[in-house]
């Protein structure tokens, strides 16, 4: 009970600070807007993108774009953590009686809520371009996004608490995010890829998430890739919370 209240109090506090300075939320939307309006139109004439031609290119592209938004939107939240460590906020929080999980969750839930808002905005912006998606599809997509957020945010915070400096955090995040992204079929489906590239991508959890997201957008909800992705994400969320929490417990040792 107490942990729920502490999480809520912290979450409301972080939301207040965020709303006071909404510039960053808008800035985070600039990249997906560029991709949606400046890159997606190119795909219309690329042979093979839309498979058998039943699916429009925007329906193929938007799910991948959303996964990219979630990855880049949440991956870099650790920079805020480094700022908090430097100004002594984390240390002060650790001397309070608040639960360590609440200290982590307050931030993570804020990040997930931001991600939900961004997802809805991107879907709305894609509608005029011909996107078609069912209400159930939107809900299932939002669940995927929430799980990605719950998975990525603790990882980013844990990394920040471990490396303790922006100079180290930036390169590490880039090192992992670029191959993860390119090997997930976000921009172009991996059906276009040569066999060796496809084989490597089998080891990328993000690939399954993108596949599931596409299936959902195309009304193929009963496809096994959908529940596979959910199970995979739930497992990753548990792992990432376990890591994030253990870093939060010993944040200054």
């Amino acid at each position: 009970m107490r942990i729920i209240r502490e999480t809520w109090v912290l979450f409301i506090h972080y939301e207040k600070l965020l709303i006071r300075n909404p510039f960053w939320i808008l800035a985070a939307l600039f990249q997906p807007i560029c991709y949606l309006y400046l890159f997606a139109p190119l795909l219309k004439n690329v042979v093979g993108v839309t498979g058998d031609g039943k699916v429009s290119s925007i329906n193929m592209f938007t799910p991948g774009l959303l996964v990219m938004v979630s990855l880049f939107g949440v991956m870099f939240v650790g920079f805020g953590m480094i700022d908090y460590m430097r100004s002594g906020v984390i240390e002060r929080l650790r001397v309070t009686t608040a639960s360590r999980l609440a200290l982590l969750l307050g931030l993570v839930i804020r990040d997930v809520v931001t991600l939900i808002a961004q997802t809805i905005i991107v879907i709305l912006l894609a509608l005029p371009l011909g996107l078609s998606i069912s209400p159930l599809g939107i809900i299932l997509t939002l669940f995927i996004m929430i799980l990605i957020g719950l998975c990525m945010a603790p990882v980013s915070y844990a990394l920040a608490l471990t490396v303790k400096s922006e100079d180290a955090l930036g390169p590490i995040l880039n090192f992992f995010s670029q191959p993860l992204l390119l090997l997930s079929g976000v921009l172009l489906p991996l059906t276009l890829a040569p066999a060796w590239l496809k084989n490597i991508s089998m080891f990328n959890p993000l690939k399954y998430v993108v596949d599931a997201s596409r299936a959902i957008f195309n009304g193929d909800i009963s496809n096994a890739v959908v529940w596979h992705a959910y199970v995979l994400l739930v497992g990753l969320v548990i792992l990432s919370f376990w890591w994030g929490l253990s870093c939060m417990k010993k944040a200054t040792e």
Binding site: H13, R86, S87, I90, E91, R92, T96, A98
Partner: peptide
């Protein structure tokens, strides 16, 4: 370092601290 939230007011910091 103190460790207040710099972008929140002093009052907000105090109340939040009490609630934690």
């Amino acid at each position: 370092k103190g460790g207040c939230y710099e972008f929140a007011t002093g009052y907000e910091n105090l109340v939040l601290q009490g609630r934690l």
